[in-house]
Simulated assay, not measured.
Amino acid sequence: MVVGYWVVVITGLFDLEGDAPWLGFGGVPAGITISLFIALAWLLTLAGSVFAAGPLLWAVPVIALGAAWFATRVLIAPLRKLLPDGPQPSRGDFVGRRCVVRTGQATPDFGQAEVTAADGSTAVVQVRTTGQDRLNRGQTALIFEYDADGEFFWVMPYESEH
């Protein structure tokens, strides 16, 4: 099993960076799932070979694989709840969103604003204005670009059409 695992890793036969839906264990990274499955299968095979004798010895690997499969599914179920589903949010997700200035002013050199993500959570981010724009505390701005080198967002004044 271990040799088979490493052959899969080396050849890139399956995507082991993502989760393992092809094993029936979606939602948990494949490396964790496969490692747990192999460790359980090995342990159960070892224990079964001690207790089984004679003609029943051939059934030990089959039973151990089935039991390891079941035990892996049971043990990774709590992990699914701890690991987030889907793609993780990135700073680029804020581009196109409105934000509210939280510092005294937002200028070309300094500023912070609060932005609300698609999931409803909020974040305070570094913002900068262009040209002569100055935004005061409480003003709404539109995030139009993210500067990865400076790790801040470019904003411009936003006027509501109410």
Rank of each mutant, 00 (worst) to 15 (best):
P87T: 02
G66Y: 09
A47F: 03
P84G: 02
R134A: 01
P89L: 15
A64W: 00
A47I: 11
R91P: 03
A118N: 04
L75I: 10
D85A: 15
V125G: 07
V60L: 00
F94K: 01
W58P: 01
F51Y: 08
G131T: 07
L82H: 03
D93Q: 11
P87I: 00
A113R: 05
G120I: 11
T122N: 11
S49D: 13
I63Y: 07
A67I: 01
Q105T: 12
T130P: 03
L65E: 02
V60G: 03
T129L: 04
V60H: 03
R102S: 15
P108R: 05
V115E: 00
P78V: 06
A123Y: 10
P87G: 01
G111I: 01
R102V: 14
D119H: 14
R102C: 08
A53H: 07
F51L: 13
F51A: 10
T122W: 09
A106R: 12
N136G: 00
A53N: 07
V50N: 01
L142W: 05
G120Q: 04
T130C: 05
A68S: 15
V62L: 14
R97G: 02
R137T: 09
Q88V: 14
F110I: 06
Q126E: 12
R128A: 10
P108E: 06
G92K: 14
T130N: 04
G54I: 06
A53F: 11
L142Q: 13
R73A: 12
G86Y: 07
A59V: 13
A68T: 08
A141N: 09
L57Y: 02
G120M: 10
N136D: 15
V62M: 11
I63T: 01
A67T: 05
S49R: 10
Q132D: 14
F70V: 12
R80P: 06
A68W: 06
V101N: 09
V50M: 02
Q105Y: 03
A68K: 09
T72F: 01
A47T: 05
G131P: 15
F94S: 11
T130Q: 13
E114N: 00
R91H: 07
S121T: 14
P78C: 05
P89H: 13
F70Y: 07
V50D: 07
R128V: 08
A106N: 13
G96C: 04
T130H: 10
V101C: 11
D133F: 02
A117E: 09
W58A: 12
S90R: 14
V100N: 01
G96F: 02
A141G: 06
L56V: 03
G66D: 11
T103P: 10
V125P: 08
A77M: 08
L135S: 08
E114S: 13
A47V: 12
G96V: 03
I76P: 04
R80S: 06
A52W: 04
V125F: 10
G138K: 09
R98A: 07
R137P: 00
F94H: 10
S90G: 15
A71G: 05
V100T: 15
G86S: 09
Q139S: 10
T129E: 05
V95P: 00
Q88E: 15
A53R: 12
T107Q: 12
R137W: 07
T107V: 09
